[in-house]
Design a protein around this nucleic acid. Structure first.
Lengths: 133, 133
DNA sequence: CTATCAACCTACTATGTCAATAGGTAAATA
DNA sequence: TATTTACCTATTGACATAGTAGGTTGATAG
């Protein structure tokens, strides 16, 4: 399952994109509009800042801002940053030592094909696709 | 992620289907061939018997047997029996009270479409598809 | 220079799931 | 009656999820 982190991250991006008027948007406002605990969102956006999905500024007038155009936020990328690999089975996680059973495994193609389906889906969806509703 | 329960279940079905000569197949043999702990497989096949995916018989000469033809084992069904709903987000799990945000939720269509993709994939795959390799 | 606002940081916690293991009981057959 | 096999109950360690709590740093308005 896609976790709250991944889903909240997308909602935060959407919220900021929709209320973007150049200024930084305080988390308080986002939390209120999205009806999500501000405390928990702090963790989410912290990860997003670290991953260069958001830009944050402290102090009065501070808040968060997108650091890309909406059409440059690939949703697959966002989800994998927040939730980890989209792979349906651990043996398909990238940079992993290959499963010793791989050659004889009769179920592997089933997962490979599904993995491809999933990637194709989320890596061809962008934040802008969600906005133009 | 698809858990070991779901994956092992499919491997057990495949193993039995391939070694089917009318007789019941003891779990010991399956565990040895598949290189999976017999103790853990006991739990897996127990669930499978409960769900009418397998038929088991105790005592000498006992073991497990398929109770359908391979082309009647839908893999989506098997996975959902073993691992629970395939839904990518909890608000898409069947027989659940609908999310109050559903109407205004701008991300819901993203999950709905992916959910459909996933179901279409696994509910159109059958055990027989894995055998005729 | 100080109050305030907001991000940022560290730590903790309850709950649940996953992947097993352990040991014993019941059923069928040689 | 001994053996083989399924079946049953209980427990465990490790980890992830979804938060909460409280304090610190940085920027700005007055």
């Amino acid at each position: 399952m896609i976790t709250t982190k991944g889903r909240y991250a997308i909602r935060v991006l959407l919220d900021i994109a929709k209320h973007d008027e150049g200024a930084y948007i305080p988390l308080k406002d986002i939390a209120a509009r999205q009806n999500i605990s501000k405390k928990y969102l702090e963790i989410v956006v912290k990860d997003m800042v670290t991953a260069n999905l958001l830009q944050g500024i402290s102090g009065r007038g501070g808040g968060y801002k997108l650091c890309r155009k909406p059409e440059d936020y690939c949703l697959g990328e966002v989800i994998e940053i927040m939730d980890g690999p989209l792979a349906p089975v651990s043996c398909l996680v990238a940079n992993q030592e290959p499963c010793p059973r791989a050659d004889e495994c009769e179920t592997l193609p089933l997962w490979v094909e599904y993995d491809k389906l999933t990637h194709d889906y989320f890596y061809n969806k962008y934040l802008s696709d969600l906005i133009k509703k």
